[in-house]
Design a protein around this nucleic acid. Structure first.
Lengths: 233, 233
DNA sequence: CAAAATAAATTGGTTTACCAAACTGGTTTA
DNA sequence: TAAACCAGTTTGGTAAACCAATTTATTTTG
């Protein structure tokens, strides 16, 4: 296990090295938005790694919108100037794994917003999905079963009903990490499910009634319960 | 160009098919958290695609925390139950490209939070970085030059100073997309730089004074200016 | 001489082959 | 008997080979 971590660190280090070298190359050659990078083959030769490794680094930078690969044509610098490019690559290289506190903080921020948006924008179809998720949650929780998954899906249904695809995506990214960390720290086992059901129903009702302020308040109460319980353990 | 788009759609469709099939496999075999998936070779044979395609699909699911690949060992189901797994894969398959409105909405939400956090938590080092970014922005803007990059870096410096790694990451994801869309819609050319300088200085001062409420208000004003100007064109 | 046609080279994408680590089962040994 | 060891297999990761589309250079033709 320790070795595996070391291996992954190595991989990560190599990729970071390649990203740094790509950055240096862009600076050295004064490449500007729209300019073409050397081909993957040349880069792999220059940096003495395989094309796969180069491609992975390029894909990462493409994910953050800094590069763009075009088939049979080349990889191009995005419409972002050199200065911003350097700054962002710096940030990407420094990106650390998110800490639990930052995850929770961000989740609360997102959910207090998505629940308001959901209350405002939810369609009838959204409402059906929400109710379905709520019922699934209730059935599990009432029988004393672990309902973490159903809880999670209810919150995701809210994000979907918010009509904001970006926040929906972010929630998808955050939630598994939250789950993992919850389990890692052995917090938040069953025990607050009874209260959880009431919370969820109140949130659902507020969304149904299209009352954003009430929905936000109920969500806030929900988190307060949740994290007070968790942190008190 | 049209062909390229078609090709990419095909790739996307194939990947979605593979992800669906992986989901079906997990359901069929009743794989639970920690269980091992069939090897990439077996999957590539079973689904009649190359290993690369399988790997890409697995990597996507790993990005969302649903799977975890361990070198020389296998790919494992994450600590998320079957129900949540199915729900999340459903969501991932339906994920659309973010629309501009959702990007802006999310950016505002994030920045109003990060600026408050930055005002509360900023270290002296953060303050130096912020000032550096501010000066770079002012120099460019005062000379009538395009200062989009410097503007962007100032906002990223705020995200960094917020001490919330998750929000920092999200800002990194959002900002290039915003830039691209701004340029695509040909909005927000120069013209509000004068006002922009004042806004940035006010935000910086509030962070320096560690006044979260003021910082948030100044950021709000900044966005109001910005998007009024943009949407009025 | 110019323009159209064609062949050669270059590109990112895809498939295949190879590698070292790690797991597996059986054997040996204290 | 059980712990240690060792060969063989399986694994994800990596490098290399191949492909189709594109671009560029050259040739042909009016």
């Amino acid at each position: 296990m320790k070795l595996e971590t070391l291996v992954k660190l190595d991989q990560s280090k190599i990729q970071k090295r390649i990203i740094s070298q790509i950055r240096d190359l862009i600076n050295l050659k004064n490449l500007e938005p729209g300019d073409k990078l050397p081909s993957e083959r040349m880069l792999s030769e220059k940096f003495e790694v395989s094309r796969s490794t180069i491609r992975e680094a390029i894909e990462k930078l493409a994910f953050y919108g800094l590069l763009k690969s075009v088939p049979q044509s080349g990889t191009f610098v995005a419409n972002i100037g050199t200065i911003a490019m350097n700054g962002m690559i710096e940030d990407i290289l420094r990106l650390e794994d998110p800490d639990f506190k930052s995850l929770v903080e961000t989740r609360i921020l997102l959910e207090l917003k998505t629940v308001r948006l959901a209350a405002t924008r939810r369609t009838e179809e959204d409402l059906e999905n929400l109710e379905e998720a709520l019922i699934a949650y209730k059935e599990k929780a009432l029988n004393g079963l672990d309902a973490v998954q159903e809880d999670l899906l209810f919150h995701l249904a809210i994000a979907k009903a918010s009509g904001n695809s970006t926040m929906n995506t972010f929630m998808l990214i955050i939630i598994p990490e939250i789950i993992t960390n919850f389990q890692k720290y052995h917090v938040c086992d069953a025990g607050l499910t009874k209260r959880g059901i009431d919370d969820h129903e109140a949130i659902f009702d507020a969304i149904k009634e299209q009352n954003p302020q009430l929905a936000k308040q109920k969500m806030k109460d929900h988190f307060k319960e949740l994290y007070q319980y968790c942190y008190s353990n």
